[in-house]
C-alpha cells in the first residue's frame, strides 16, 4: 500500500503541505475561498514538526495495528483497504484517539456547531496526495515501502 513518507533532510518547514491539505478537503478546493469564505474552515490533518533544526511534515502513518481505532469508544474510526478513516457523524469528540496516537497525527476539527476528530485520508480521488504534490522541496514522497 502506498503511504506518504516525510524526508526530514529535505523539509524546510514552510508549511505549504498544511495549506494544500486544507484546500483539498474544502468545499470549493480553492485556496482563497477555503481560507477566507468557507465557514467553518476545514480543519488541519497534518502538522509540521519543528525543533532544534529538525523539521518534518507529519500525517497519519496508517498503522497496521492502529491505537486510535482501538481507543475509539464509538466505532467512528475504521480501516478500509488499509486506510484509517473517521466517520465524523459517529465521532463524539472524546479525544481518546488524540491521546492514543503515538505520532500526534489525530487532529481536532471545529465544525461550528460541533467538534470531531480529523485525520489524513490519503486524498481519495487523487493520484498523489495534495501535500506530496505541493511540497516544493520533495520532502514528502508517495510510495510503497
Amino acid at each position: 500500500m502506498h503511504r506518504v513518507f516525510p524526508r526530514e533532510d529535505q523539509c524546510m518547514a514552510c508549511g505549504l503541505c498544511v495549506v494544500a491539505c486544507v484546500v483539498e478537503h474544502s468545499q470549493s478546493k480553492d485556496v482563497l475561498l477555503a481560507y477566507r469564505k468557507e465557514n467553518p474552515r476545514p480543519g488541519r490533518r497534518n502538522v509540521v514538526e519543528e525543533n532544534v533544526g529538525v523539521s518534518l511534515s507529519l500525517q497519519c502513518r496508517h498503522c497496521e495495528d492502529p491505537a486510535c481505532v482501538e481507543a475509539c469508544v464509538n466505532g467512528a474510526l475504521y480501516i478500509q483497504d488499509g486506510v484509517i478513516l473517521v466517520n465524523k457523524d459517529h465521532c463524539v469528540a472524546c479525544w481518546m484517539c488524540v491521546m492514543a496516537c503515538p505520532y500526534g497525527c489525530m487532529h481536532r476539527e471545529d465544525r461550528g456547531d460541533r467538534w470531531n476528530s480529523n485525520k489524513c485520508d490519503l486524498c481519495p480521488g487523487r493520484k498523489i496526495p495534495a501535500c506530496v504534490e505541493i511540497c516544493p522541496n520533495r520532502a514528502l514522497v508517495w510510495e510503497e515501502r
Binding site: 533532510d9 529535505q10 523539509c11 524546510m12 522541496n137
Partner: peptide, 18 residues
C-alpha cells in the same frame, strides 16, 4: 534560498536532489 548559509534549517532549502 539555502545556498550561502550554513544554518542547518536554511541549508535544507537547497535540496541536493533538485
Amino acid at each position: 534560498w539555502g545556498i550561502t548559509t550554513n544554518d542547518p534549517c536554511l541549508s535544507k532549502r537547497l535540496s541536493i536532489e533538485i
